[in-house]
Design a protein around this nucleic acid. Structure first.
Length: 455
RNA sequence: GGCGACGUAGCCAAGUGGUUAAGGCAGGGGUCUGCAAAACCCCCAUCACCGGUUCGAGUCCGGUCGUCGCCUCCA
């Protein structure tokens, strides 16, 4: 069995074969001008799962993810806040990193920032101008889309029909309306860097090319991002990179995740209809949020609703209980996890069918509970469930309980035990209900009472 | 207008030609329990609509209706 991925470039399911031993993975990062929202969470959880699965399958992965720490929105916002752009971006980057940690997203191996890669970008732009793929116009430098005969093929559009849309801003400096900026001359007062074309800053697309080139090489295995980046970002990235290196394809497999909807429309920063990751994390555990994402396929739009998140929360709890409840059985392990493991792998091999992979985990959890109830041993199966859940980045651990509260909870349980012994059920129930309201659930079993913390 | 995607049970969501249409949540009925909780057992869909291809279609083709996305910054 091999991993098959839906390659945006071909639209086909393709067997994954890395170019070399180490899989080169580049994921488009955020523009840190504002806090990240659950749409970003979806995207980075998806690519985190891709990375974890590749590693689970025995590949070594080198994961690079950028920060676009210079652009119009950053400049505007920093100006409005009256702070330096660096102050704004480093704050947002710090928050982003913290949120990813909370979501159990593995850190990339490199997080290059656009502003730290200016020389590389200038070098690329110069070479593109020299080769005739780009031209300078009034302090700006543009990529000449006409220089690439199949420009638009990647995103399934052609220059003529794009012009028909009439949404491309006319710019008399450009040779062609679709030509895109590699370098933007600075307007007075804007942050800028020196260049052969005067002070300015890089265009959006060039940074990813320069960083991918520098940190991963001229041809990479997988490039990921949201579907909204297919055009123009990735189309342009391909054009300029392949023009620069003379090698194609720049990327072997392009993967794009769908977007998160807020109500009936796409959640996005510009629409202002977003739910920050920090806000989601206040209400739901990382496991719940990840499970919400993973319940559906990465190329299908997701909707953030309390119903969906609650379902994920309960689902995570179900798996958690299956792995944490010990068995007192003594005979050999009663559950064979191998069939589940096979189903899990088959599902993940099929373009990361996480919905099906999760179903395999729920089946295993069910089997574990059944056998445990029969008094059989299930420890090995529980270990397997934990291992496979980890491939999806699910920890299956309970929400952090306040350690200092534990002895008091234990004490209340002991007292309640005595009340129950004395058939003082009303008082005993008051203890249980009281703890329940504080987010602690008591469960009476044959071995005594246990407690767990709810999300 | 161009391009892309989607419409499966109360909700979320797999399934791309062939046994009883995965799984989760919610709901109903049981077992367990002092009562609960958790777990376990049982129940709950003919796949937007119309037509076609086929021995056979949720699954392919055509059309209708509806929804979303990209074409400008966006994960």
């Amino acid at each position: 069995m091999t991993l098959k991925l839906r390659n945006t470039a071909s639209g086909e399911l393709e067997a994954f074969k890395p170019i070399a031993d180490v899989v080169k993975l580049y994921v488009c990062g955020v523009t840190p001008y504002d806090v990240s929202h659950v749409g970003h969470a979806m995207s980075y959880v998806v690519f985190d799962v891709l990375r974890r699965y590749l590693e689970f399958r025995g590949y070594q992965v080198r994961h690079v993810q950028n920060f676009t720490d210079i652009d119009d929105r950053i400049i505007t916002r920093a100006e409005r806040l009256g702070i330096e752009i660096g102050e704004l971006t480093s704050d947002m980057i710090e928050r982003y990193m913290e949120e990813m940690r909370s979501l159990n997203v593995l850190p990339a191996h490199e997080y290059p920032c656009a502003t730290k890669e200016i020389p590389q970008m200038i070098e690329m732009i110069e070479a593109l101008v020299e080769k005739g793929y780009a031209y300078e116009a009034g302090g700006d430098v543009y990529y000449r889309v006409r220089s690439k005969e199949d420009y638009g093929r990647f995103s399934h559009r052609d220059l003529e029909s794009m012009m028909a849309g009439a949404r491309v801003e006319p710019n008399e400096q450009k040779e062609h309306p679709a030509d895109f900026a590699l370098w933007k001359g600075a307007k007075p007062g804007e942050p800028s860097w020196e260049s052969p074309w005067g002070p300015g800053r890089p265009g959006w697309h060039i940074e990813c090319s320069a960083m991918a080139l520098r940190y991963l090489g001229e041809q990479i295995d997988i490039h990921g991002g949201g579907q909204d980046l297919i055009f123009p970002h990735h189309e342009n990235e391909i054009a300029q990179t392949e023009a620069y290196t003379g090698k194609a394809p720049f990327v072997r497999y392009w993967l794009h995740n769908a977007w998160v909807k807020s109500g009936e429309e796409k959640m996005s920063k510009s629409l202002g209809n977003f739910i920050p990751i920090s806000e989601a994390l206040e209400q739901y555990s990382a496991d719940a949020i990840r499970m919400w994402v993973l319940f559906s396929h990465y190329r299908t739009p997701l909707t953030f609703t309390s119903e969906a998140l609650s379902a994920a929360k309960r689902g995570a709890e179900r798996l958690r209980i299956a792995v944490r409840t010990p068995s007192n059985g003594a005979d050999g392990d009663a559950v064979d996890a191998a069939p589940c493991r096979e189903q899990f792998i088959a599902a993940m091999d099929d373009d990361l069918n996480t919905s099906k992979a999760l179903a395999a985990l729920f089946d295993l959890a069910h089997e574990i509970n059944r056998r445990r109830d029969e008094g059989r041993k299930v420890a090995d199966a529980q270990a397997a469930l934990l291992e496979l859940a980890d491939v999806l980045g699910l920890t299956l651990t309970e929400p952090e309980a306040d350690i200092s509260a534990a002895p008091f909870i234990e004490l209340l349980i002991t007292i309640r035990e005595e009340l129950r012994g004395a058939k003082q059920f009303e008082l005993a129930d008051r203890v249980r209900d009281g703890l329940d309201e504080l987010g602690v659930t008591l469960e009476d079993g044959p071995e005594g009472t246990t407690w767990r913390r709810r999300e």
